[in-house]
Write a protein that binds this DNA or RNA. Structure first.
Lengths: 210, 210
DNA sequence: TTCCCATTGTAACTTTTGTTACTGAAGAAA
DNA sequence: TTTCTTCAGTAACAAAAGTTACAATGGGAA
């Protein structure tokens, strides 16, 4: 576990803090598709992402959902931070995008470290910063882009996260992430294929040039 | 100035911190409509809002803009926090919604206080929390609501901020805030009027029952 | 093999939103 | 007063996105 932490967080944390993390942290391994957090959950520990990726969703009252952003190794969930500190319910859903390893750190430690470690403070602050920027990016997409451009962005993001030009997903799944309908996704994907930007297969999309 | 700070922040900060703020802080008074921050600006001090309100905008490359949220007394600009700490350019525009009084605190102090005052740490963290929640709310609006519902929400928000049922704004100004066109706003406002929810006048909208 | 079901393709249509163009009214300026 | 500019109302149309319905296909299950 020490090795794991060092690999992803050593440039961020002091040795002494890394040691503390490895003492109180608990490793958690999840498979792609597993649900980590549901809306309304109370959270008592904070995840540090070691390997894999997690996708974060927002949902309205009627069950409509929207993908907000992905978490990657070295990230933590800013939403969880705020939930933990404020004793609030989770406002988001978290689902593993890939097989993922996490270190779970109890909330009490977070508070304590905020006072003792400058590196921890900086980490927490920069996590918030990163997350705000991701949220801005999400807002840009839904406010300023048409669905075809959002779809292209989505495919590029998925490629970067999965490190593969082949995106394994059905049109229906993509539609859920973008909060649109399957027919719209099929239509736009077909258009992208006819433009030579992608190649369509059952259950997958191959990126040619996006 | 001490009085000002105490009124709005005393429940948040220790006496010693309030004293420090009043020593290094600079009062700034702006009029409604004044621009406080432009996209691309480098920020060297952090605003604490005493009275009034500030609106925060996002803009894409083509000059299209979108109102993100309002800041109210007791708030600070989370975006500025992240900009200051990271030495980054501002990603947003800030414009006074009303006549507004601010205390500007130099960045260096921020860092220093993070280590010394627990109340300051909590304030900064809860500011981030509040802002993330506001951003989620904004995302909900643009992702899940139709324009007529967004317009109603906008009018309600403006009423709450201005503490008046009469919203002074042209249809064009409303259209800019919601990132749509003037014609669309006129159309939807007319519909709301015919439903008896609002009353339309030149340069203003009066809320009857929203 | 045959059957079944999930997935995809596509047409036809509706709704929502955006655009263009023109009108008249309000109110400030000359 | 007359003139001019801003603001609002509205029609007609275009574009984007959502909906419904149905056909075709691929790949596993029986």
């Amino acid at each position: 576990m020490l090795t794991n932490i060092k690999e992803n967080f050593s440039h961020l944390f002091e040795d002494k803090l890394i040691e503390e993390i490895s003492q109180v942290g608990v490793i958690k391994e999840v498979k792609g598709g597993d649900k980590l957090i549901e809306i309304g959950d109370y959270l008592r520990s904070m995840p540090l992402l070691i390997t894999g990726a997690i996708k974060i969703f927002r949902e309205d009252g009627e069950g409509d959902e929207l993908l907000l952003y992905f978490l990657e190794p070295g990230d933590t969930c800013a939403m969880t931070l705020t939930c933990c500190l404020g004793q609030k319910k989770s406002e988001i859903r978290a689902i593993a995008e890939l097989d993922t390893n996490l270190i779970m750190v109890p909330v009490q430690k977070m508070e304590e470290w905020m006072g003792r470690y400058k590196s921890w403070r900086n980490f927490v602050l920069s996590s918030y910063h990163t997350r705000l920027m991701e949220m801005l990016d999400t807002i840009d997409s839904i406010a300023f882009l048409n669905m075809d451009e959002r779809l292209m962005k989505y495919l590029r993001d998925k490629r970067n996260i999965g490190k593969s030009d082949v995106i394994v997903a059905t049109h229906q799944e993509i539609a859920y992430d973008l909060h649109t309908s399957r027919v719209v996704v099929s239509r736009l994907l077909k258009k992208l294929e006819s433009m030579g930007k992608i190649e369509l297969n059952r259950n997958s999309v191959k990126i040619i040039a996006l």
